[in-house]
Design a protein around this nucleic acid. Structure first.
Lengths: 256, 256
DNA sequence: AGCGGATGTGTATGTTATACACAGTTCTAG
DNA sequence: CTAGAACTGTGTATAACATACACATCCGCT
């Protein structure tokens, strides 16, 4: 495997950690550094992760970290892959629908567990070992389904994007609750800034009280609904495929 | 409208820009500052946006910007809303499907035009004027459809998340092309790091050559496919609703 | 035995956001 | 018409940050 041509931030994920040869025993390890960084990110958010804070938590100096990581950017890449790989992806060989539902839910859960993942700047397309395992699992959930492989990829991406988006929304809402004394909840915010004349549909939505619940995001209901919608669309697609009707381009045609 | 209880980063978006009363005429304006910042972000990415760079581009000192913006975070919030509001959202009163397809495509286009939007840390749920207009337009595309308002919101969120995810992928792929001499394309990367034993489905995908095209992301095909899938799911949902069959919870049940 | 590469450290540099005090400008109250 | 108050852009200062570099120390291989 020729590592040389990989984007430089990916190299660290595949570089063999060669055994200790000369010099003092390393006191730390890449895993230790990344672990400390993740703990900080979980607690204080991505903004709280600085080289000095990570080093302090480990009891070493800032510069020592650079023996394990070439730059902070690289550290972020490894953090992201490590957090992604915490739980093994889900494959259900019997039902593609149950498999994909669980698979998507796990991605959502990962983003909820590590909200900072949503803010890690993606410096390259997904190609870390953990991310590949997730892609692979997603595709395997569709293994027994008769669909062009390209469509399967699209479905996987679609579901991943959905999980990510819902996690973003869910994170935002729960981050709004704490300072409820000084700051209004989402419902109240919208009531303040919307106007029946310019935002009729929105106002109807706000009036329905959807945004005023004690917990603003109910995973089972909110997450499940969109998921069902997507999977239903996928099921339709599979059916059409089985009948030999392939529609490759956008659904701009009415087709209601 | 009581602005006081809004999250502090949102205040700037609704604060009336009161007319000039005393003191020297302001040489700049919030719009000018935001415009310069957006130009830099478009050219150099979000990382290139620093208070000093923005000030330099305008020909003023760094600190002068703080007369128009309370903090850099606030600047980012205004930038995001300004970029979002560049083009008015699409409403098609005749066909919800055509309307939502165009609406989603416009969101995708916005993210492609300003890729840094994907990296702006969301400090609050969407509540800027432009974002509300987009939500409103999305809901209005579903105005003539008989669905609980909560479901309509979910559909809007679903489509927005999809557009965002696809834009992310598309941006990643096109950012990989330039340094093709030193760095491999996505297809080649995957060929390097995957293994038929551990990634059978992925390898099949890579072998199909999907990732090797000159342009890695074909908007019409790639974007249109997932969109069609979602909209088909939505159409199904509407049909079920019309028949009085409402399924609220996740599609973990087989239902193949 | 000792060489050379590896390790953690201290120092230094450049960049960043932003607090604060200032001097100049212009409107408004008297 | 004048004095002061509010607002402007600016310069200086600070603290946090990423990271380059030189160093002394350590230890396995020759």
């Amino acid at each position: 495997m020729d590592i040389g041509r990989l984007p430089k931030n990916l190299v660290v994920l595949y570089e063999p950690r060669d055994a200790h040869r000369r010099g003092p025993r390393p006191a730390l390890s890449l895993a230790a550094v990344v672990g400390a960084a993740i703990e900080i990110a979980d607690a204080d958010g991505l903004a709280g992760v600085s080289m000095s804070k990570v080093a302090e938590r480990l009891g070493y100096t800032t510069m020592s970290l650079y023996r394990y990581v070439k730059s902070k950017d690289e550290l972020l890449v490894v953090m992201a892959d490590a957090a992604t790989g915490e739980h093994p992806p889900v494959v259900n060989a019997e039902s593609w629908r149950a498999g994909l539902a669980a698979w998507t839910g796990s991605i959502f859960a990962t983003y909820r567990r590590h909200p900072w993942l949503l803010q890690v700047p993606m410096s390259a397309p997904p190609a870390g070992p953990s991310q590949l395992l997730w892609m692979e699992a997603g595709l395997q959930n569709l293994a027994r389904v008769d669909l062009p492989i390209g469509h399967k990829l699209q479905i996987i991406q679609l579901l991943h994007g959905y999980a990510r988006g819902e996690a973003q929304m869910s994170t935002d809402l729960s981050s709004l609750a704490p300072d409820a004394a000084t700051t209004a909840g989402y419902g109240e915010i919208l009531r303040t800034v919307t106007n029946p004349a310019t935002h009729p549909a929105l106002c109807e939505l706000v009036a329905s009280g959807i945004f005023d619940g004690p917990t603003d995001y109910d995973e089972d209901v909110d997450f499940g609904f969109g998921l069902t919608t997507i999977l239903t669309g996928v099921a339709q697609l599979i059916e059409h495929q089985a009948r030999g009707l392939v529609r490759g381009t956008a659904g701009v045609s009415t087709g209601e």
